[in-house]
């Protein structure tokens, strides 16, 4: 199956390991991964700050880039959600309505794609230790991808998943919120890292690099010995084919 990867700007610039793991994982699962270079950013930083016009400029770039894709897969619940919104955002724009809707329909978050399109719920991977899963708000509540990552993680060998107190509460990232309302964001992430500390784990696993950058940044400041991993990195670990 041909899959077009939307790496997201965060992965491209800061977390190339997540991109690499995503590609290797999809290839091991039998996909042919295509990466059109015209892709940049889904437009969410501008869109969620209220800059609809500037965001649309970025969105059109992605729509053009992914016109020929069969499936667009991205290792981010939040960016997948943004792409799913394109159809609504351009609904009244004659020139872009059909193309944007087509992109929305064929876009999938990585674990959603693996479980619901490829029909795979167990991937032979190994990670020794205890972990909590951070349920990102956009992915869980708004995109509705809740069980898929948990299902995949439950089948990782030697990995013990532990509950996280107040898991449903946002980590305080919120895109530009984290720099517009830095003080509030700080309190939110500190409550999150306290819960992580109390859970007594080796890893925090998530499916969105924004949240992981936020939580990881705070864990590092606190010098907590907890490794932050994207789910693609976990599923790609120790996976021999």
């Amino acid at each position: 199956m041909r899959v077009t990867l939307f790496s997201t700007c965060l992965v491209d610039l800061f977390y190339s390991n997540v991109g690499i793991s995503t590609v290797e994982l999809l290839e091991k699962l039998g996909c042919e991964v295509d990466y059109p270079k015209g892709q940049i950013c889904c437009g969410q930083p501008a869109y969620n700050s209220g800059y609809k016009k500037d965001a649309k400029t970025a969105m059109k770039q992605l729509i053009k880039t992914f016109d020929d894709a069969e499936y667009v897969v991205t290792p981010s619940g939040s960016c997948a959600l943004m792409l799913r919104e394109y159809g609504h955002i351009f609904a009244d724009d004659e020139k872009w309505a059909a193309r944007s809707k087509a992109l929305s329909v064929k876009t999938y978050e990585l674990t959603d794609f693996i479980v619901n399109v490829l029909g795979i719920d167990s991937i032979p991977s190994t990670l020794q230790g205890k972990a909590v899963f951070h349920t990102s708000c956009h992915m869980t509540r708004l995109l509705g991808v809740k069980e898929e990552p948990k299902l995949l993680l439950s089948n990782v060998e030697k990995l013990e998943m532990k509950p996280l107190a107040n898991a449903q509460n946002c980590c305080g990232f919120g895109g530009t919120f984290s720099v517009k309302m830095g003080d509030i964001s700080a309190e939110m992430v500190q409550e999150k890292t306290r819960s992580i500390q109390e859970a007594d784990v080796d890893y925090v696993i998530g499916a969105d690099c924004g949240c992981l950058m936020n939580i990881g940044g705070r864990l590092k400041r606190e010098k907590q010995d907890v490794e932050v991993l994207h789910i693609a990195e976990v599923l790609n670990r120790g996976m021999g084919v």
């Binding site: 491209d12 610039l13 800061f14 977390y15 190339s16 990466y35 720099v179 700080a186 940044g217 400041r221």
Partner: peptide
């Protein structure tokens, strides 16, 4: 603006090579 972030958290650095550079090589 980055100060609002680094007041409470570490900010990651840009990688020497971007993901797309790895991808070109991989392809």
């Amino acid at each position: 603006m980055m100060k609002e972030w680094t007041n409470s958290k570490e900010f990651p650095t840009l990688k020497t090579s971007r993901f797309r550079d790895w991808m070109s090589k991989h392809e």
